[in-house]
């Protein structure tokens, strides 16, 4: 048995989650543009700050978040097809999300251990604030994944529950989407 979403008139999930997503995307746009604006004024400070970031850890976190996204997407497909595997996919996505949180915490701790804090330079103010806000989104996304995992494992899913599961998965994809640009701007872009 397959279950089709009734929410096709506004895409996946509940309409409200799209309002949340579009609002978040706009706010993060301002974050990205302010980082570029100030980085362009003092590229040397930003280049020095970037050199102190751990590129392999940032890359690892990117790979982990992309993998968690596909696991969540496969979980949704499993729920739609009536398969019992949905909960397992969501649990695996949560594990990836927890890895992201753990690695980010290690990164923060390592920075602070070497005397780098939020007030060390303008670059690190942006770094800690923007990645910190994103980390808050990851934690909220993990809570959402936990809820939808329980819903998926509770048994047959009706249309309203499916819309809720879709909403949680959408939020998780948005977290992944925002990290793509954060990773590019903080870890890869050469400031000059």
């Amino acid at each position: 048995m397959t279950l089709e979403s009734k929410a096709t008139e506004h895409g996946l999930g509940e309409q409200g989650v799209w309002v949340l997503i579009l609002g978040d995307l706009l706010i993060f746009s301002l974050f990205f543009l302010s980082l570029i604006y100030y980085g362009h004024l003092q590229p040397d400070i930003y280049a020095r700050g970037q050199a102190r970031l751990d590129f392999p850890l940032g890359l690892f976190n990117s790979l982990v978040l992309i993998t968690s996204s596909i696991l969540a997407a496969l979980g949704l497909e499993a729920v739609r097809s009536g398969s019992a595997k949905g909960g397992g996919f969501f649990a695996a996505a949560m594990l990836c999300g927890l890895s992201f949180v753990a690695v980010k915490t290690i990164e923060y701790a390592e920075k602070m251990h070497t005397g780098v804090t939020i007030v060390s330079s303008e670059f690190f103010t942006f770094y800690f604030v923007f990645t910190g806000i994103h980390l808050g989104h990851v934690v909220a996304g993990l809570a959402a994944l936990g809820l939808i995992r329980r819903a998926a494992e509770a048994g047959p899913v009706d249309a309203p529950t499916l819309a809720l599961i879709e909403s949680g998965v959408l939020f998780w994809h948005m977290v992944d989407l925002l990290w793509v640009m954060l990773f590019a701007l903080f870890y890869i872009l050469e400031w000059r």
């Binding site: 506004h10 996946l12 994809h173």
Partner: peptide, 13 residues
């Protein structure tokens, strides 16, 4: 790619 495939915007309004 994330928006089109994972968020399924390809089939969205």
């Amino acid at each position: 790619m994330i928006a089109m495939e994972f968020m399924q915007l390809r089939t969205a309004p």
